[in-house]
């Protein structure tokens, strides 16, 4: 139980850290990383939920959800990076000023 709380709690902590970083750090790349940290937090929490004790097999549904979520997050990150790259290429400067 305590392990589960530790995992879940750190997931929430990651989520909050990500949110904080997303809000206060102007550079877009940091926002993108923040989003990924938030995602990691949510996935962490979900995985912690799957734990049902040492003897019982884990709940497969949250695992599957996390897998799907990761792929979605990767896709979004890839697209956002391409956007950022495009902005950089257009101006040669970083897109941080937005």
């Amino acid at each position: 139980m305590i392990t589960q709380f530790l995992y879940g709690g750190s997931g929430i902590l990651l989520f909050l850290l990500g949110t904080w970083s997303f809000i206060v750090h102007p550079p877009l790349i940091r926002k993108l990383i923040a989003i990924n940290v938030m995602g990691a937090g949510v996935f962490h929490t979900l995985v912690a939920l799957a734990y049902r004790g040492l003897t019982a097999p884990a709940d497969p549904v949250p695992h599957a959800l996390v897998l799907t979520g990761i792929v979605v997050a990767v896709s979004a990150t890839a697209l956002a990076l391409a956007f950022g790259q495009r902005l950089d290429r257009d101006h040669g400067s970083s897109a941080d000023d937005d």
Binding site: I23, V24, P26
Partner: peptide, 10 residues
Amino acid sequence: DWATAGLLWL
């Protein structure tokens, strides 16, 4: 401004 908007959102 991201921080203002973010704070409002929170």
